[in-house]
């Protein structure tokens, strides 16, 4: 973080009013025009601008078109879906949506998911940052073993653990309970959280913590009142990773949470999709897909600024 070690290839001098001439091509796409002498806005600048806009718009289309197509298909009749995949629906069949909604209890599943993911996210962040803090800034025997145990967890294929995990849960009477699922979500989110936050805590300056300790604050208090607030950017980034991972988790609840009333959103959707596939109700299937996408997209659009600042902070470390 500290501003030492300027890259040697960079001279210090900065001149105002420097417009860059620009490479007309993207990195890695071959020919590189020479850097033009200093001066006005060059034509290369425009070329680059057009090129970059072009590429950006293209990817934007690639991202949005499949989603728009799904929305469009969800408002069509089955026949329209089959005969003209890209045609606009003759009339808007919102009844597809209500059919998908009523058949799949998406509303209930949404609440279940909010509850479980909300609690596990808090738990993950708290426990993860506690472990990471200690691992990053203290010396004690067995530290490396614990660190590797956590980090190694990132490479475990979850599917391998499913059945034994089921036993563990059963022996502890945690099957088909929200708190059981929360504990499992926390446990399986710890590796990445610890990995990420350990390196984050290492980058934080120690002077503030020292000052707090000298002032007589306990280690615990220093952690919660000094270090955690300082680590907020990192916490937000890893929190976003974890939220997305837990929100979209499918494997774990499928096996550990088979109670129909307690289903997670992903389970409900796959169930809906699978049953629509057997029943051949295509329009409702697309409607279900859209119903599943919209709330998450909506939440994202509302919070996109926070999501981005969170990531920004994470990238800054």
């Amino acid at each position: 973080m500290s501003a030492q070690a300027q890259p040697s290839e960079l001279p210090g001098a900065i001149k105002e009013d420097e417009a860059p001439g620009a490479a007309g091509k993207a990195p890695g796409t071959g020919k590189v025009p020479d850097f033009p002498p200093k001066g006005r806005i060059s034509s290369e600048g425009k070329v680059l601008n057009v090129f970059s806009h072009g590429m950006l718009v293209l990817w934007g289309l690639l991202v949005t078109l499949p989603l728009l197509w799904a929305v469009m298909s969800s408002l069509k009749t089955d026949k329209e879906i089959f005969t003209s995949p890209w045609g606009l629906p003759a009339s808007l069949h919102f009844d597809n949506w209500s059919r998908a909604w009523s058949k799949s209890n998406i509303g209930d599943f949404f609440l279940n998911t909010v509850l479980v993911v909300g609690c596990s996210l808090i738990g993950t962040m708290l426990l993860g940052s506690m472990a990471a803090y200690v691992l990053a800034r203290f010396e004690f025997p067995g530290k490396r073993i614990i660190y590797f145990m956590f980090v190694g967890g990132m490479s475990f294929p979850v599917i391998l653990a499913l059945v034994p995990l089921f036993f563990v849960m059963r022996n502890m009477s945690l099957l088909n309970t929200y708190h059981g699922l929360i504990l499992v979500y926390i446990a399986y989110s710890l590796p990445f959280t610890v990995f990420f936050l350990t390196s984050f805590f290492k980058t934080l300056p120690s002077s503030v913590a020292e000052a707090a300790l000298i002032d007589g604050a306990s280690q615990t208090r220093t952690f919660f009142q000094v270090m955690l607030p300082m680590a907020k950017p990192g916490l937000i980034s890893v929190g976003i990773f974890n939220f997305l991972g837990q929100w979209n988790q499918y494997m774990l609840p499928t096996v550990l949470n088979t109670d129909e009333d307690k289903r997670m959103l992903t389970q409900g959707l796959v169930q809906l999709a699978a049953s629509q596939q057997y029943k051949g109700d295509w329009s409702a299937l697309f409607a279900g897909l859209v119903l599943a996408m919209l709330p998450v997209l909506g939440v994202y659009i509302v919070f996109q600024r926070q999501v981005q600042t969170g990531l920004t902070a994470g990238a800054l470390k």
Partner: peptide
Amino acid sequence: QYGFPLGFLALPVVIYAIFVISPFVQS
């Protein structure tokens, strides 16, 4: 010296060992 790290690590390590490590070792 170790009380604080131990206290902070205990819960995460226990949860992790029960739900992640032990199933994998069993596997």
